[in-house]
């Protein structure tokens, strides 16, 4: 029985946790400041990996696209293909997966350790709400950082594509940019993808703070919670991606 009710009650707890966090939103100066601090910490943590991965994804996408398009003599369309798939799918999804592995895990581990070392309890005893003080800023920072990181990932991927298509394959730079400019729509492609990444950011960081907060306060408990964060948030990102794509486009 536990096997079936367990996950359902966990999901319920997680949603309640979200409401408890949102009830703590104040827009006060100190709260905004901690959110910005966390955005800086969480964003900066993921910056390098996002940039490197974005660049190489852009290169390999162009390589495959050119290979395929060449058969129809359409390799000058490469920027369109790369751009569409990047902005709509690969940018948001890959960034989210990388974010889950890089920042999600460290949020869970950090909060879990705070719990294991009684810091959370100490806060409650000082009449400070740890959900508002610890969980909320990290959650908000996740919602803010993922779209920003996605934009950065996309930019670096385009750069990778430029380097490979124009630099290596000697395609015409003018055609490359004009196809990109006329073929990619701001609303459909760019905003559509950005909107997804906001949802992904929320999902990952909710799971990360919730798992950290509900981790068993031991070394192995924190380890398990950290693993669960990556696994569950990666799976959910892919599921939500399909749902949003099929309903919203």
């Amino acid at each position: 029985m536990e096997r079936f009710t367990g996950p359902i009650s966990q999901a319920g707890q997680c949603v309640l946790f979200l409401f408890r966090m949102l009830a703590g939103v104040r827009f006060s100066g100190s709260q905004v400041l901690t959110v910005l601090q966390q955005t800086y910490l969480i964003g900066a943590r993921s910056l390098v990996i996002i940039m490197i991965c974005g660049f190489f994804v852009g290169m390999v996408l162009s390589l495959q696209a050119i290979n395929a398009l060449e058969q129809f003599g359409a390799s000058d369309q490469v920027s369109l293909l790369v751009g569409k798939s990047l902005f709509r799918e690969l940018g948001p999804v890959l960034t989210a997966l990388l974010f889950a592995g890089r920042a999600g895990t460290s949020i869970t581990a950090e909060i879990g350790l705070m719990k294991a070392t009684n810091q959370i309890e100490a806060m409650e005893l000082m009449a400070i709400d740890p959900i508002q003080r610890i969980a909320l800023p990290r959650f908000a920072a996740g919602v803010i950082s993922v779209p920003l990181l996605t934009a950065l990932f996309n930019a670096l991927a385009i750069l990778g594509s430029v380097v490979f298509s124009i630099g290596v394959m000697d395609l015409d730079a003018g055609i490359f940019w004009s196809k990109l400019q006329t073929g990619i729509y701001f609303e459909q492609d760019f905003l559509g993808g950005l909107w997804k990444s906001v949802v992904f950011g929320g999902t990952i960081s909710l799971i990360a703070v919730y798992f950290g907060y509900s981790a068993k306060p031991t070394g192995s408990g924190v380890g398990t919670a950290t693993t669960n964060t990556v696994v569950l948030s990666s799976v959910l990102v892919l599921i939500f991606d399909f749902i949003m794509t099929s309903f919203l486009t």
Partner: peptide, 20 residues
Amino acid sequence: ELQHFRRNIGVLLQDGALFT
């Protein structure tokens, strides 16, 4: 009331529990 009450008690937990 509990929040208010807790301002009047100081607690030293095992190992101190400083915010790291």
